[in-house]
């Protein structure tokens, strides 16, 4: 999809796939085009060109009605009772009046908000309002979830509850969520899409992105200086600091390396280096 505002291209030929049963993280700097992309996914904004496809065909209004959405701009009816509000959204998505009420109660109880169900939304604390907002996105058992910064403004405990909810409620559906909290994305996501300046600069399973490039190992010997590794063939030593070395394999297998190390002396640790997402993020969006 592409979206142009005036002479600015906010989203430039962005194309990616979100798979069912997998949580896909959507990261990028401010202004990279995440929110615009998500609004186009939900049909709130029309793409200048391109289309959204659902299960192999162009997405229709009925398909979209089954999606769950949490916009970046939070908002529900401030002067409406919490349970009634959730039931209203469930009904808009096709639930019968009775099912809608039951579902609203179920979600509120999950968040320990059962006793507040008759309160007006703006009588709740901001954190609780945020919970209700997530509940509103999940209330109709969506067939897909699009969550724009769902965890911003939540304390770590609330994030844990939310993550648990995502795992139980959206286990089989495609979930796309954007976030600035890379540690959280790292913990939660199966797949990752990185956006920069309106384009996709990296996409794929998180573990592949993190292990991408050359295979690096960190080696720590028991007290012995590690500089002798420079003379071993089939590997490249990238850095040595006392008994610790960072190497890239260049012909040796990991098993060969392990044998070579233990044959030479006692070893404290040998571990594959996985780059933190923040590192990858900085490199590819530079």
């Amino acid at each position: 999809m592409t979206r142009v505002f005036g002479d600015q291209t906010a989203v430039d030929h962005v194309s990616f796939v979100v798979r069912p049963g997998r949580i896909t993280g959507f990261v990028g700097a401010n202004g990279a085009g995440k929110t615009t992309t998500m609004q186009m996914l939900m049909g709130v904004l029309a793409p200048s060109s391109g289309e959204v496809r659902w299960q192999g065909a162009a997405v229709g209004a009925v398909d979209r009605r089954s999606f769950g959405y949490m916009p970046e701009e939070r908002g529900l009816y401030p002067r409406m009772k919490v349970a009634e509000q959730l039931a209203f959204f469930a009904r808009l998505h096709g639930f019968s009046a009775g099912d809608a009420r039951n579902r609203a109660t179920e979600l509120l109880e999950f968040f320990d908000l059962g006793e507040r169900s008759e309160d007006l939304l703006d009588q709740l604390s901001l954190g609780n309002q945020q919970r209700v907002q997530i509940a509103a996105a999940l209330v109709h058992r969506p067939s897909a979830l699009v969550l724009d910064e769902p965890f911003s403004g939540l304390d770590p405990l609330a994030v844990d509850v939310m993550v648990e909810l995502l795992h139980t409620e959206a286990a089989d559906v495609p979930v796309l969520f954007s976030s600035h909290q890379l540690d959280l994305v790292e913990r939660l996501c199966d797949d990752l899409i990185v956006l920069a300046h309106g384009r996709v600069v990296a996409a794929g399973p998180v573990h592949e992105l993190r292990e991408g490039g050359t295979e690096q190992y960190r080696v720590e010997l028991d007290g012995e200086d590690a500089s002798w590794l420079r003379d071993v063939r089939g590997l490249v030593v990238e850095a040595v600091d006392g008994s610790v070395a960072l190497l890239a394999l260049d012909g040796l297998t990991p098993a060969d390396l392990a044998r070579t190390l233990t044959a030479h002396g006692p070893v404290v640790e040998m571990a594959r280096v996985r780059q933190p997402l923040s590192q990858i993020f900085r490199e590819i969006t530079r």
Binding site: G43, V44, P71, G75, A137
Partner: peptide, 8 residues
């Protein structure tokens, strides 16, 4: 709330 409504 209009954005949620418009999406639904």
């Amino acid at each position: 709330v209009v954005e949620i409504l418009a999406a639904a």
